[in-house]
């Protein structure tokens, strides 16, 4: 049988932990609306990145360009990015 949870003597002393939530909690499953960016109109102002509470929006730079990327593994669909985007290029789309 596969052992899922650690035995008492396998846990680090003092209940200390070093595992990051991003490695195991994919909170994207919470979402009912999904933010979708229209990249052609995005001004790359970064307000959405700054206000995302997770945070799960970041700027991805390639050699020629940069692009705002949403990590849907974590996006809870709060809608703050869409609300705060100054040029209104993020749509909240029902999943």
């Amino acid at each position: 049988m596969k052992k899922e949870l650690p035995y008492w003597d396998e846990m680090e002393q003092g209940f200390v932990t070093r595992t990051l939530t991003e490695m195991i909690n994919k909170t994207g499953t919470w979402r009912t609306f999904k933010p979708v960016i229209d990249h052609s109109r995005c001004t790359k102002c970064r307000w959405c990145i700054i206000y995302c509470p997770e945070p799960c929006i970041h700027m991805e730079a390639s050699n020629s360009d940069e692009k705002v990327i949403i990590d849907y593994d974590f996006c809870k669909g709060c809608g703050i990015c869409a609300e705060e985007c100054p040029v209104k290029v993020i749509d909240m789309v029902e999943e």
Binding site: L5, Y7, W8, M11, F15, V16, T17
Partner: peptide
Amino acid sequence: TMGAFGYPEYYFE
């Protein structure tokens, strides 16, 4: 991280 929150599946251990 020290002083984490422990659900029943970890508290006992």
